[in-house]
Write a protein that binds this DNA or RNA. Structure first.
Lengths: 348, 348
DNA sequence: TTGTACGCGTTATCAA
DNA sequence: TTGATAACGCGTACAA
């Protein structure tokens, strides 16, 4: 018994060597026949293929990876699985990977920096061919990423990206999105627009806030810091932030709110409703990301649709191209978004 | 250039051998020190650990897997990713796997039998330690599973299970669930209850239909075959099936509908609404699985909550126990469900 | 067209 | 406590 609690058991599986022995050829010929190389006699090839099938031969990909130094595996690091956005992203990645002969190892960091570190390390020790990463909220130190890139592991960031460290990034233009939806409100006459902001440690949070501010300034509306309240990415934070905003004297209150994402907006809606205020008549509200729920709740929410599937697929295709040397790292890829106007903004 | 389109590039990574050379010890000692074995001199161990860190050593898990014939990888085969049920299942699996030192390779079969075959084969050639499978709708031949089990790859089925082939199964008691929700309707006075059934090729479909029928019979209601319409698992099928039911002469129409799952029920609701019928006054409807949307739509839907996270976690824990020889295969594990009464059944 | 020798990076085994 | 050797199963390179 070794330290793992496992006996060293024989694999029990047929090897190329075994097939070779049975057929009186060398293992090399078997290998060639099975990987479809041209230089094998047609008849011996047929014999080998037949024997392989009869014996239930399954090539050992581990051994293959060891010699080739190529695993055909992509490591995926995401901060949460259940949020409706990521499953779609993963579906896009899986489609792209499957078509190109890669597999996905999925790791969930649950927004925890240490788990993310651990994930990246163990994925590297598994010698994944590349990494697809969306960073956890608590990440501040980028040296792990830099080390990986330096050691030759291609990385493509998606959604929550880290720029300027030599890795490609696939995301929406957060600043622009937020500016757009803010201008949508401005265009419909709202003057006192608040922002429920994301964590400033994440690019998404910073960029969206910048977009909000840019839209105000461009339209000659004075930026009022007291109208920006930190909410984070979740419902609870949105609720608490909105509670704070509603403590402002009535005449200083916002007439519209731009939330950093849909969950935060849902939380805020709850707070607004608890205060017996009407949406959108008393306070309009908009989100971002188009969570599945956005169109289903009693006051359907105006938001910005992010093409999750496309983000996943694009990120995977970009990574695979870089792994195979067909494309250079360091790209910045922006995928298009779409303003989805529903009732919560009062513009319908 | 080999047939893969890849040059054979040197790994560029530090090996245990390299550390050994620098320190004037053997590779074996390095290996022992790094895997925390007891029989290493404390001082040499420290030296080795330090050197490993300084040189940025990442153990090669591939080589390790090759000798140990153990990958610490679990292959997950699911029919669809985006359906809200599976992300939660995967989260449960990931949590369990992470704690036990395993990784998940995720494969999406998109309900396609050939893709499922392919997935299971390539996962086996990657020598995964075990498989977690929810079968695709189009699967009829179970020999792949049997072969895998015979060759010693543990399998645990979840949700859409295959019983009696020696593999463990984790699921809800579909027959019982469907009987329960049907009896709920009967208990509130509905007499003419229809069933939108799932694909009969899948155990879930068959079992739920059996539960529906059992509930009727147990309560002395005559089973009417014309009230069972095949819907499948998706919205569109539910819509079409309901359309058919609504073509029945008015007095033969059902006053309540038991759908095989929530998406089918959503489709049916759409059809009912298009016919200007009211839910639940004209026709009551219930689903199963508690899709996230069930509670959010304008007429919230009565359904049965399946503990997705728990199913995933239990399946993974069961598999890991079997992989490590701590538990025997062939178990049948039932996880509890919960009737969630909302407005669509008219019982509130 | 086919075979031989060796290497990939690690760990089990047995000897020192 | 440490080291030498072999093995895991395959693919490359070269020779036959």
């Amino acid at each position: 018994m070794n330290h793992n609690g496992n006996y060293r058991k024989p694999s029990g599986r047929i090897t190329a060597e075994a097939i070779a022995a049975k057929l009186g050829v060398s293992a090399m010929t078997v290998s060639r026949a099975l990987s479809g190389r041209p230089n094998v006699n047609k008849k011996t090839k047929e014999k080998i293929l037949l024997a392989a099938k009869r014996l239930g031969y399954t090539p050992n990909h581990i051994a293959r990876s060891l010699t080739l130094r190529k695993t055909q595996i992509i490591g995926v690091v995401i901060p949460e699985i259940a949020h409706s956005f990521f499953p779609e992203v993963i579906r896009g990645m899986e489609d792209a990977a499957y078509s190109a002969g890669y597999h996905l190892i999925l790791t969930n960091t649950a927004e925890d920096y240490n788990r993310e570190l651990d994930a990246i390390n163990t994925l590297q020790s598994r010698r994944v061919d590349g990494l697809l990463i969306s960073t956890a909220q608590t990440v501040t130190d980028h040296s792990v990423y830099k080390d990986a890139v330096r050691l030759g592991t291609p990385i493509v960031f998606f959604d929550r990206v880290v720029q300027n460290i030599g890795a490609s990034c696939v995301s929406i233009d957060d600043e622009d999105c937020c500016a757009r939806i803010t201008e949508h409100l401005i265009g419909h006459g709202y003057k006192s627009i608040a922002h429920l902001s994301g964590p400033p440690s994440i690019s998404i949070g910073r960029d969206r806030q910048r977009g909000y501010r840019r839209a105000l300034e461009k339209n000659g509306i004075k930026f009022r810091p007291e109208l920006v309240e930190r909410a984070g990415f979740h419902e609870k934070g949105g609720y608490l932030a909105m509670e704070k905003l509603l403590q402002l004297p009535a005449r200083e209150r916002p007439d519209a709110v731009v939330a950093v994402n849909d969950p935060a907006a849902f939380g805020a809606m709850k707070s607004i409703e608890e205060h017996k205020l009407r949406i959108p008549q008393d306070i309009a509200i908009v989100g971002m990301t188009d969570d599945v729920r956005a169109g289903l709740i009693s006051i359907p929410m105006t938001t910005i649709r992010q093409p999750a599937y496309e983000i996943g697929k694009t990120a995977a295709l970009t990574l695979i191209a870089e792994i195979e040397g067909k494309s250079k790292p360091g790209k910045r890829i922006i995928v298009n978004t779409e303003l989805t106007v529903r009732r919560s903004c009062g513009c319908l």
